[in-house]
Design a protein around this nucleic acid. Sequence first.
DNA 1: CTCCATTCGTGAGGTACCTCATCAATTGTT
DNA 2: AACAATTGATGAGGTACCTCACGAATGGAG
Lengths: 148, 148
Amino acid sequence: MSQREVPSTRPGPADVGLRFLAAAHRARGAIDRQMAAAGLTLSRIKLLQVLAGRGPVHQAELAEVLGQAPRSVTQTVEALERLQLVTRVVDPDDRRRKTVGLTEKGRSALTAGEQAGHQALECIFGALDAGQLADLDKLLACLETVPT
Amino acid sequence: MSQREVPSTRPGPADVGLRFLAAAHRARGAIDRQMAAAGLTLSRIKLLQVLAGRGPVHQAELAEVLGQAPRSVTQTVEALERLQLVTRVVDPDDRRRKTVGLTEKGRSALTAGEQAGHQALECIFGALDAGQLADLDKLLACLETVPT
DNA sequence: CTCCATTCGTGAGGTACCTCATCAATTGTT
DNA sequence: AACAATTGATGAGGTACCTCACGAATGGAG
């Protein structure tokens, strides 16, 4: 309308947005599918990473760091506990809290998972060269600007 | 390791990938939150759009077009039927099939929803100017190349 | 005209998130 | 000490997807 020509370029925000969401959905699916082979999940790995990086923490802190609702963390921790990758004990200093800690099993699952996840990500986003990655990174930074 | 310096630029595929997924998650959340006000959802709107564009179709076709598993379509259609936005009848020509059709209520919900969704998308991806959108679009096209 | 393979939809169960309502424990505040 | 407000975790219930297993209906081969 305003510019004329260049028809296929100049897509509107809504178009690109939908495409963006679709691409992310595909990527997420592919990654989780690849990681499932190792019996793991991106979300769970991320939680384990926090534990590995900070030592035992209570769930509220996990929620904070992961940017998730506390309820969601409870659920993931439950699963992880069932798999014996983490332990969960009531904090004696504040018995409302439950401190989550990494087990040995959890630690090795983490390294395996990180590797699998890394590979999966490389496999998908490796389709972009270094320059494109830098561009995409910049664009994502812009998107992160938006209030939400 | 290999290159040194330029730390913030030249991010690896895995870094950008995670950032990409995180951004998408945020965007998706924001959009659904905004649309929830109108009692709608992106997924449901997309399904209604297919119906509006093709007339009544059976669920397998919906799954095909939407790129989802048939089971997922069943679920969404059930919800939509409960809301009386679609009707679902057994096809007399092939009684395995159930033909899904848009109701009047569904049609108006669709227009309302499309508008809400469009706004939400504009609100988020409007943070990028036309050039950036075009760039992002190109990058997404590359990502779509990947087999999955 | 039988049977068998395929197709359609769904039951069951899983992961990842969310919100809202609750309960228990802690920390103010008089 | 006594009560109120806050905080930590969870129950209940929801949306969005998925896979796998299965029954019902079709359709094609013999």
